[in-house]
Measured scan of single mutants.
Amino acid sequence: LIVDEAINEDNSVVSLSQPKMDELQLFRGDTVLLKGKKRREAVCIVLSDDTCSDEKIRMNRVVRNNLRVRLGDVISIQPCP
């Protein structure tokens, strides 16, 4: 998924579009594992966002710094076991 700027300022939340959440079989409030660069990982709570496009994930600056990614970078997402 492509990293995009978050609207809310919550450090533990990322936003996906509802069709993408359905495709990944995620529900609102699920915890997910995000994988960024240099084997960096972060655990976040996923919320749906109608304004977010299907191929993007919204996260704020703190999460991006933790993953060592910038806007427009590609990250992977998976549900936490």
Rank of each mutant, 00 (worst) to 15 (best):
L1G: 02
L1T: 03
L1A: 06
L1M: 10
I2N: 09
I2K: 12
I2P: 00
I2E: 06
I2Y: 03
I2L: 07
I2R: 06
I2H: 04
V3P: 00
V3C: 05
V3E: 01
V3M: 05
D4C: 15
D4N: 03
D4H: 10
E5S: 13
E5R: 06
E5A: 08
A6C: 09
A6P: 13
A6K: 06
A6N: 12
A6R: 08
A6E: 07
A6W: 12
A6H: 12
I7F: 13
I7H: 06
I7E: 15
I7K: 11
I7D: 13
I7V: 09
I7T: 08
N8V: 08
N8Y: 12
N8D: 15
N8M: 08
N8C: 11
N8T: 14
N8G: 13
E9A: 11
E9K: 05
E9P: 14
E9N: 15
E9F: 09
E9I: 07
E9L: 08
D10V: 06
D10A: 09
D10C: 06
D10L: 07
D10P: 11
N11M: 10
N11Y: 08
N11C: 08
N11F: 05
S12V: 09
S12Y: 07
V13E: 06
V13I: 14
V13K: 05
V13W: 12
V13T: 12
V14K: 01
V14D: 02
V14F: 00
V14W: 01
V14P: 00
S15R: 12
S15T: 12
S15C: 12
S15G: 14
S15A: 11
L16Y: 01
L16V: 06
L16G: 00
L16T: 01
L16I: 12
S17M: 00
S17L: 01
Q18K: 10
Q18S: 09
Q18D: 04
Q18R: 10
P19G: 14
P19H: 12
P19I: 15
P19L: 11
P19N: 04
K20R: 11
K20M: 14
K20H: 03
K20N: 08
M21C: 03
M21Q: 01
M21E: 02
D22N: 10
D22P: 01
D22S: 08
D22M: 09
D22R: 11
D22C: 08
E23W: 03
E23F: 04
E23K: 05
L24V: 03
L24I: 03
L24F: 03
L24S: 01
L24K: 00
L24M: 04
L24W: 04
Q25K: 11
Q25G: 10
Q25A: 07
Q25F: 06
Q25L: 06
L26K: 02
L26E: 00
L26T: 02
F27C: 14
F27G: 13
F27I: 10
F27R: 13
F27V: 14
F27N: 11
F27D: 15
R28M: 13
R28G: 11
R28C: 14
G29H: 14
G29K: 05
G29Q: 07
G29V: 02
G29T: 03
G29E: 05
D30L: 02
D30C: 14
D30H: 07
D30K: 04
D30P: 00
D30A: 12
D30S: 05
T31P: 05
T31W: 06
T31V: 07
T31I: 04
T31D: 04
V32T: 01
V32Q: 01
V32M: 06
V32E: 00
L33C: 14
L33P: 00
L33S: 07
L33H: 10
L34S: 01
L34Q: 02
L34R: 00
K35H: 01
K35Y: 04
G36D: 04
G36C: 13
G36P: 02
G36F: 06
K37D: 06
K37V: 09
K37W: 05
K37E: 10
K38D: 07
K38R: 11
K38Q: 09
K38N: 15
K38I: 04
K38Y: 08
K38S: 08
R39H: 04
R39Y: 06
R39S: 13
R39K: 10
R40L: 10
R40Y: 15
R40G: 15
R40M: 08
E41Q: 08
E41W: 03
A42H: 13
A42F: 14
A42Y: 10
A42D: 13
V43K: 12
V43A: 11
V43T: 09
C44N: 05
C44I: 05
C44F: 08
I45R: 14
I45A: 12
I45F: 11
I45D: 05
I45V: 13
I45G: 09
I45Q: 04
I45W: 05
V46P: 03
V46S: 02
V46K: 02
V46Y: 00
L47T: 07
L47Y: 08
L47Q: 11
L47K: 10
L47C: 09
L47A: 15
L47H: 15
S48E: 14
S48I: 13
S48C: 15
D49K: 02
D49T: 12
D49N: 04
D49A: 06
D49W: 00
D50G: 13
D50A: 11
D50F: 05
D50S: 12
D50H: 11
D50Q: 04
T51L: 07
T51G: 11
T51W: 04
T51H: 02
C52W: 02
C52E: 03
C52A: 04
C52F: 02
C52D: 03
S53A: 11
S53D: 13
S53T: 11
S53R: 10
S53V: 11
S53Q: 13
D54V: 11
D54E: 09
D54L: 11
D54F: 07
D54H: 09
E55H: 10
E55G: 13
E55C: 12
K56Y: 11
K56M: 07
K56F: 06
K56G: 13
K56S: 14
K56Q: 15
I57C: 02
I57R: 00
R58W: 02
M59K: 00
M59S: 01
N60G: 09
N60L: 01
N60E: 04
N60R: 03
R61W: 07
R61G: 11
R61D: 11
R61C: 12
R61E: 09
R61L: 12
R61F: 06
V62I: 13
V62W: 11
V62N: 15
V62M: 13
V62G: 13
V62H: 14
V63H: 03
V63D: 13
V63M: 08
V63S: 05
V63C: 13
V63W: 03
V63G: 04
R64K: 03
R64N: 03
R64E: 02
R64W: 02
R64T: 03
R64H: 03
R64F: 05
R64S: 04
N65H: 10
N65I: 03
N65V: 06
N65R: 10
N66W: 04
N66E: 14
N66Q: 12
N66T: 13
N66S: 10
L67N: 01
L67D: 01
L67M: 04
L67I: 09
L67E: 01
R68P: 00
R68W: 05
R68D: 09
R68I: 02
R68F: 06
R68M: 13
R68N: 07
V69S: 04
V69T: 07
V69D: 00
V69I: 11
V69E: 02
R70F: 05
R70M: 08
R70T: 13
R70S: 14
L71D: 08
L71R: 07
L71S: 12
L71F: 05
L71A: 15
L71V: 10
L71T: 15
G72S: 04
G72C: 03
G72D: 05
G72L: 03
G72N: 10
G72Y: 04
G72H: 04
G72P: 00
D73M: 03
D73Q: 12
V74L: 07
V74W: 08
V74Y: 09
V74A: 13
V74M: 07
V74D: 11
I75P: 00
I75N: 01
S76K: 06
S76L: 07
S76N: 05
S76P: 02
S76Y: 07
I77F: 04
Q78L: 12
Q78I: 11
Q78V: 14
Q78G: 09
P79D: 03
P79V: 12
P79R: 07
P79I: 05
C80F: 09
C80H: 09
C80V: 09
C80W: 04
C80I: 14
C80R: 09
C80Q: 15
P81C: 04
